[in-house]
């Protein structure tokens, strides 16, 4: 059992948790993730480790309610427990001094990009960050990202805050501009990461993306998370989660992530049916 020692609602559907897991806090490196299972009937889902406090023995995770499991996680409060937490899983990202690095976080993807930006900064890179969201209310970790970046740009799809438009438009201006960009890290929805790669590909700028496929065990046993990368099958849980975005078959991954579309809908209906009033209350 892993205790939630702190919770902060970042937006309507996004919450930050600090979870007691001293051993993971001590071992984790930027880019790694955990797998959680909320209760006895729960499924195993991966979540990026956003931050860790070794002294307090906690790890920070950020979750957006997109399905039954994340919705149930969103219901948990300080003092509640998560049944299983395992990690740190996956490979840490390379945190060399590349020179100038652009870190792009889209929506909830800003959560995983934050530790990467931190690590890059610590390694001596000039860090330029671009964070985006659909609307101002969904923007997360802007103050933290500002603190860890040499320069920061914000974009919202609806123009409610910062640049009116997409992160890729800002990226396009930067890579066409006078600054030499050595590497790009992008985490966000798959269409965003795909679009980022399309911007950087003609400039031949190495672009690392963090993939979020469906996983079951997360330790290299089941193969659910396989993705075609550079024409080869790779397993995100042990080979990733970060890969050279120019080699990733994003369309395939998008299709695979919709594998259980019908089942997820069914599970949500079940949840709403049993816990209906509570959900409506919170959303109103």
């Amino acid at each position: 059992m892993f205790e939630i020692v702190y919770k902060k609602q970042l937006s309507h559907t996004v919450a930050l948790f600090r979870v007691k897991a001293p051993k993971i806090a001590e071992k984790r490196k930027a880019g790694q993730f955990i797998i959680i299972r909320i209760n006895e009937h729960g499924e195993r889902i991966p979540l990026t480790i956003v931050d860790a406090d070794i002294k307090e023995g906690t790890i920070t995770i950020i979750s957006q309610e997109v399905g039954k499991t994340t919705e149930m996680l969103g219901e948990l409060e300080k003092g509640d427990h998560i049944l299983d937490v395992v990690g740190p899983l996956g490979k840490p990202i390379p945190t060399d001094n590349f020179g100038t690095a652009i870190c792009i976080g889209g929506g909830i993807g800003t959560a995983p990009i934050y530790p990467i930006a931190q690590a890059l900064k610590a390694a001596g890179n000039k860090v330029i960050s671009i964070v985006g969201a659909r609307t101002k209310d969904l923007l997360i970790l802007e103050p933290e990202m500002t603190k860890t970046s040499d320069e920061i740009f914000v974009a919202t799809d609806d123009g409610s805050y910062g640049h009116h438009g997409f992160v890729t438009q800002i990226l396009g201006r930067l890579v066409d501009g006078p600054i030499r960009v050595d590497i790009v890290f992008a985490v966000g929805p798959l269409p965003m990461m795909k679009a980022v790669c399309n911007v950087t590909r003609p400039h031949k700028i190495l672009t690392m993306v963090s993939l979020n496929p469906i996983m079951v065990d997360g330790t290299g046993m089941c193969g659910a998370c396989r993705v075609t990368i550079g024409g080869k099958n790779r397993f995100v849980c042990v080979d990733g989660p970060e890969f050279n975005g120019h080699e990733v078959d994003f369309d395939e991954l998008m299709r695979r992530n919709r594998s259980y579309y019908n089942e997820e809908k069914m599970a949500m209906e079940e949840l709403t049916y049993h816990e209906g009033p509570r959900c409506y209350e919170r959303n109103s």
């Binding site: 009937h41 729960g42 499924e43 079951v216 594998s259 259980y260 089942e263 997820e264 599970a267 079940e270």
Partner: peptide, 10 residues
Amino acid sequence: RFPEYDTPVL
């Protein structure tokens, strides 16, 4: 035992 258990299978 889905949806009693949360993990689906096709």
